[in-house]
Computed example of a mutant assay.
Amino acid sequence: RAMPNMHVFRPCDAVETEAAWYSALTSKETPTTIVVTRQNLTPMQGSSKNALKGGYILEDCEGVPDIILIATGSEVELAVEVSRVLENKGRGVRVVSMPCMDMFEEQSEEYKQSILPKAVTRRIAIEALSTFGWGRYVGPEGKIIGMTSFGASGAYKELFKHFGFTADEIVKIADNL
């Protein structure tokens, strides 16, 4: 993502992977990198060709959300799991899938505000990679669940637990926002 003029996609399921592939085949000026996971992914209800906008609302609550969860790749499923717990606690939650930050930045300000309204400052970004770039989406009051180290190896479920990529840990963070 630090490379200029490169669309980096982390799709959450087959639908977003198809959108990334379409983007790669049709873009005449910008190369595309598609970063997929090794684990099996659950098809996400709500995933769509809106992935071509870089970020879109995967799930939403009625009215203005209390909190926005932004995720990419396999972590979108985790965000949906967290949203279920928070909704059961009475919180209004929006889940945003952000498969390609650069394509999201290419959208109009009106579109970006419709996805990430400035009025909603409680935001959590979830990505089991570097925290690079997420600050602009969570703002000063939000939190980023990401990696700040390198070199651990093992089964992904064990590593997710070790690094705090669990619904329980993220719900705790959301409860304190």
Rank of each mutant, 00 (worst) to 15 (best):
D168S: 15
D66F: 09
I34L: 03
N40A: 11
A125K: 06
E81Y: 10
A20R: 00
I57S: 03
V8G: 06
E75T: 05
P99D: 05
A24G: 05
A79M: 03
N50T: 14
Q39A: 08
S47T: 08
C12I: 11
V64H: 10
P65G: 13
A155Q: 14
L129N: 10
A79T: 00
I173A: 15
C12N: 12
M147L: 08
V171P: 00
V95T: 09
A19K: 03
E75P: 15
E18H: 08
A24F: 02
E29Y: 12
H7P: 08
V95W: 00
L41K: 05
G142R: 13
A24C: 09
S153H: 10
A51Q: 01
Y156W: 10
C100V: 00
M147G: 12
I70V: 04
E16R: 01
E29N: 15
L177A: 08
G54Y: 00
G154R: 12
E110T: 04
V171T: 07
I68P: 07
C12A: 14
G73H: 03
I67R: 12
R136E: 02
A20M: 07
D175V: 00
K28E: 11
I124G: 11
P43L: 02
N50H: 10
L177G: 07
T121P: 07
D102F: 00
V85G: 02
I126Q: 03
V171G: 09
P31I: 00
G90C: 15
K118C: 11
E105A: 00
S23E: 08
D60G: 10
P43T: 05
E105M: 04
T121R: 12
E18K: 03
I57V: 15
V95P: 03
P99Q: 10
V15Q: 13
K53G: 00
G135H: 07
G142N: 12
W134D: 11
M98C: 01
I70P: 00
V36A: 01
E59N: 11
I115D: 02
M103S: 03
L129Q: 11
D60V: 03
M147F: 03
I145C: 14
T30V: 04
D168E: 13
T72D: 05
G151M: 09
L58A: 00
E18R: 12
A119Y: 06
V95E: 05
Q107E: 15
K49A: 04
V76Q: 01
K157P: 15
I34C: 05
G55D: 03
P99Y: 02
N40W: 06
Y111Q: 04
A167T: 13
R123H: 08
G154A: 09
Y156R: 15
C61F: 13
V76D: 01
L116E: 09
Y56P: 02
F163S: 14
T37V: 06
A155G: 13
P43Y: 15
F132Y: 09
T72I: 00
S74A: 15
L25F: 15
Y111T: 11
P4H: 06
A152W: 07
Q113C: 01
V138D: 15
S149E: 15
R84L: 06
V82I: 06
G146R: 04
V76I: 02
K172D: 12
Y156V: 14
